[in-house]
């Protein structure tokens, strides 16, 4: 417990240097928010193997299929590949998540704490989809993409995992070393839309 506490107070947010710029940039109700320190646990296993059923009991839902995300209890499970998922939960849940998932998976796969491997950026508001369209090739139109879907793609040259949370909220999970680059693109997109919006 003491160890955990010490680690928590000494942590640094990957996007600390951009925080002021991020807070100052909006388009109407659309804004970017940093979501550091999410608990993230990687799962690798055969979805048709014995661990899948045991996991479903622990997760409270089946493992989601391609490019789907399911919310179950206090966490969210994102599909990353045919045998790869990421479980995302609130800060501080990583140790208990790893423990419960590892006991479910046993020797039939891998469970790994990846909480520092990606940091979060939440893009929300009526213009969120247009902001993404400035730097991401994925079609987020409600006819083809919506809450409950996730996708691994690029913001320009940087890999991201995008999880649509609500009709106009997207959580972007980014490697910390690429986070500033991704944020700069989103902020620039907002800047352009802000100029358009203010002249509407």
């Amino acid at each position: 417990m003491l160890r955990g506490l010490a680690a928590m107070v000494s942590r640094a947010e990957p996007l600390a240097a951009l925080e002021a710029k991020i807070a100052a940039t909006t388009v109407d109700d659309t804004r970017l928010t940093t979501v550091p320190f999410l608990a993230q646990v990687g799962l690798r296993l055969d979805p048709d193997g014995p661990a899948a059923a045991r996991l479903a009991a622990v997760l409270g839902s089946d493992l989601p299929g391609p490019n789907r995300a399911v919310a179950a209890g206090a966490h969210r499970v994102l599909w990353l590949g045919p045998d790869e998922w990421l479980v995302v939960a609130a800060d501080g849940q990583e140790d208990s998540l790893v423990a419960s998932l590892a006991s479910a998976v046993g020797e039939d796969g891998g469970v790994i704490d990846l909480s520092s491997n990606r940091t979060g950026l939440e893009l929300s508001g009526a213009f969120a989809r247009e902001v993404l369209a400035t730097c991401c090739t994925i079609d987020f139109h409600p006819r083809v993409f919506g809450p409950g879907q996730c996708v691994q793609t690029l913001i320009q040259k940087a890999g991201v995992l995008i999880d649509q949370r609500t009709d106009d909220t997207y959580l972007l999970l980014v490697r910390p070393s690429f986070a500033a680059y991704v944020a700069e693109w989103l902020l620039d997109g907002m800047l352009g839309l802000q100029a358009d919006f203010s002249t509407r």
Partner: peptide, 27 residues
């Protein structure tokens, strides 16, 4: 005070320890 993985790996020929911690605790 931080949980870490320590390894005695040397790329200089000197006595050396590499201390690994989650990225958010790196600084």
């Amino acid at each position: 005070g931080m949980p870490a993985r320590v390894a005695r790996i040397s790329f200089s020929g000197e006595l050396a320890f590499e201390i690994n911690v989650p990225t958010t605790s790196g600084l």
